[in-house]
Design a protein around this nucleic acid. Structure first.
Length: 233
DNA sequence: GTTGAGCGTT
């Protein structure tokens, strides 16, 4: 009975979803169920957790059977001290699926003409919390979820094979193209001057065993692009 | 072990 969210949503035909925020990271659904159930009939209680770590995000969803009870719980439980921290209770605005939520109430209203008017005004209130948590010292794009869906092998590969410390700050530079061009030009003039070590095999370069500097064959193989540039103005 | 604006799962 206490296990909610284990078998998915029970039934959401006419239920009111309440969003509980500001709760502690240790608060569980079992702790909120008796608290909200005392003020009304709770249909389901679910607390989203992190799929990587499994920790609570700090907010929970409580579904009531009636709006009056939900409203009552919001006014009563809103600002209640739970686990030593004040919680925030309010009606849920957004739903997990394309469910129509009106004033916290989930109403199944199928599209009359066409679900074209489903697009709403994009708000900057996107999921920033995940970005803040995820982005420790690595640049991520909006396509993070897509790449996450596949595998993190690419990330680990670069991490353990490329370099222990990556510098994603290079993306911050505005005139990257210009700098890149300048850097390339300098790299061509002087081998030692680029802040980024592009040496594919630093171990070999570090070995003063052989000095393929005077070698012409090696130079041709090392920089074949010079040939292309010479013929392409 | 940590954190603190927000919007959800089978």
């Amino acid at each position: 009975m206490s296990h909610f969210g284990r078998s998915g949503p029970p039934d959401i035909r006419d239920t009111y979803s309440l969003l509980v925020l500001n709760i502690t990271f240790r608060t569980t659904a079992d702790d909120l169920f008796p608290l909200f159930d005392k003020y009304g009939e709770v249909v389901d209680v679910f607390i989203p957790r992190d799929r990587r770590t499994g920790d609570s995000r700090g907010f929970a969803f409580v579904r009531y059977k009636y709006a009056d009870e939900a409203q009552k719980a919001v006014e009563k439980l809103d600002g209640r001290n739970v686990d030593g921290r004040e919680i925030r209770v309010q009606f849920a605005k957004y739903g997990p699926n394309a469910e129509r939520i009106h004033k916290g109430r989930i109403v199944e209203e199928l599209p009359r003409t066409s679900g074209r008017s489903r697009s709403r005004s994009p708000r900057p209130r996107y999921r920033d919390r995940e970005y803040k948590r995820r982005s420790r010292s690595r640049s991520q794009s909006r396509g993070r979820r897509e790449r996450d869906r596949y595998h993190d092998r690419e990330r680990d590969y670069r991490r353990s094979s490329r370099s222990p410390s990556v510098s994603p700050d290079y993306r911050k530079h505005s005139g990257r193209g210009k700098y890149d061009d300048v850097r390339r030009s300098r790299s061509r003039s002087y081998s030692s001057g680029s802040p980024i070590r592009r040496s594919p095999s630093p171990k070999r370069s570090s070995s003063p065993h052989s000095t393929p500097r005077k070698g012409s064959a090696d130079e041709k193989n090392h920089e074949p692009s010079s040939h292309s540039r010479s013929v392409s103005p």
